[in-house]
Design a protein around this nucleic acid. Structure first.
Lengths: 252, 252
DNA sequence: TTACCTTCTTGACTTGAATCAAGGCAGGCA
DNA sequence: TGCCTGCCTTGATTCAAGTCAAGAAGGTAA
């Protein structure tokens, strides 16, 4: 039996998941994001068979920790996670935020142990994809192999975007870019691209963007004063996308 | 016929490559870096068959450019390359340096077009690995598939290291880290870990580390004054590794 | 050899973001 | 209801790295 997953909005994690573990990839409304593949229905069945849909994670619980044995990669079904590394001197570096449909954990493949930790920013449901099964299946399904090569390659290019952002852009540009990125990712999930609730704290934003909390806060205030954003704590409304784009210094 | 590659030192590119195209992976002295695999000799033969060893690139020539169709990934045989992206406002962001035994070009997989450009910093010889052949071979050789998953995962974790460096560390720490990284990579190739010639300019170093040339130059001067490094233009000698490590703020 | 050009270094000054410090606000709990 | 406690904001000050400017050193070509 499969049940259609009716809502994967960020607050719907519990509702969506406690009773609806048995979603299949074929039915999942996120499959266009996480599995944009020309797979035969038979293939999808095989993939479904290896994927484990376990009970949801509560806010601030870890999906995995840096140094844990690497077993699986994970697709986010609902909710948001942050990935972070702890530096040698004990500070934290947020390396990414993961929204529904996105896949995390691939940095663990190289050493057979997770290179970063993943923590739920709110209630989260994930699909667990055991990596050895995925490898075996990939040798049988060239499309799937290619898909995972592409996913990892995308992660590389996204990291390179972040490197450029950190290396070249001002505080304003960094915050503007993150807002645009979240906006785009919401649009992909058919959610509003102009109004959303930030799942992460100012500290996390600052940490991700290489800025202090105070700077992040000041940038938000400035953008509000310029009528680019409407900021009410974590609720964000983009009032002027064009100005935001200009501020982010991105032509695309 | 295969000829043993006698020298892959950075200046030996021309000598090594104009007459010695026919090296095989089985004989290549870099294979412990680029192919640390338990492959049967028959497997290695199959891999050899798809790899193309073309004529060397001269300094400042491009191996590929951002936006080029993605066909292959490349293993560096001798010499050094830099990878860089051009930002929307026309500036350059160096995303990595690639030394002999290292593999580049994997960021092109996700879009079937190269996400960055690769330019020779000196005379360079590469092994070209056509990606579609590699994919096919990977479905037949699970070890090879796993190896490429691992290589890509390593690229991700290295990018995350750089993100952390850019986001959290001072100019001194960044330059110290790069010197240690180059030192380590030299050691892997059985070259001196304490004395080497930087293949890249100060501009490239600054660009990679998110610093200006002037700052890079000042850091080198400071390190020289502290008897940590001996700097003579591009010739570097590490006088005090422990202090350099302390300066880089890395316990490892 | 000189002349030119690029790359590197050093100094003086400026500036954007960090730090330090104080208060405000919202949500949870007694 | 009111009081914590943990976020978030705002202001004043400091500082690390950027900018601007000048000159030195190294490589290349005539």
């Amino acid at each position: 039996m499969t049940i259609h997953l009716t809502d994967t909005g960020d607050n719907a994690a519990l509702k969506a998941c406690t009773h609806e573990y048995q979603v299949s990839c074929g039915n999942c409304r996120l499959n266009s994001i996480c599995l944009p593949l020309a797979l035969e229905s038979d293939d999808i069945q095989q993939l479904d068979d290896i994927i484990q849909r376990s009970k949801p994670l509560q806010k601030s619980q870890h999906l995995y920790r840096e140094g844990d044995d690497f077993q699986s990669v994970y697709a986010v079904r609902s909710g948001t996670l942050k990935a972070y590394k702890t530096t040698d001197d004990g500070r934290e570096q947020v390396t990414g935020f993961y929204f529904p449909g996105e896949i995390l954990g691939m940095d663990g493949i190289s050493n057979n142990s997770h290179a970063s930790s993943a923590k739920a920013l709110e209630t989260v449901a994930v699909c667990e994809i055991p990596f050895t099964s995925l490898e075996k299946l990939s040798t049988l399904m060239p499309n799937l192999q290619r898909h995972f090569f592409q996913l990892m390659s995308r992660e590389i290019t996204e990291d390179q975007q972040l490197i450029t952002l950190l290396s070249k852009n001002s505080a304003d540009e960094r915050v503007a870019s993150l807002m645009l990125s979240i906006s785009t990712r919401n649009a992909r999930r058919k959610l509003s691209s102009t109004q959303f609730r930030l799942p992460m704290s100012r500290v996390d934003i600052g940490n991700y963007l290489g800025l202090t909390v105070e700077t992040v806060s000041r940038v938000f205030s400035r953008m509000q004063k310029m009528d680019i954003l409407l900021v009410d704590n974590k609720e964000i409304e983009i009032l002027d996308v064009d100005s935001l784009r200009r501020m982010a210094n991105l032509s695309a």
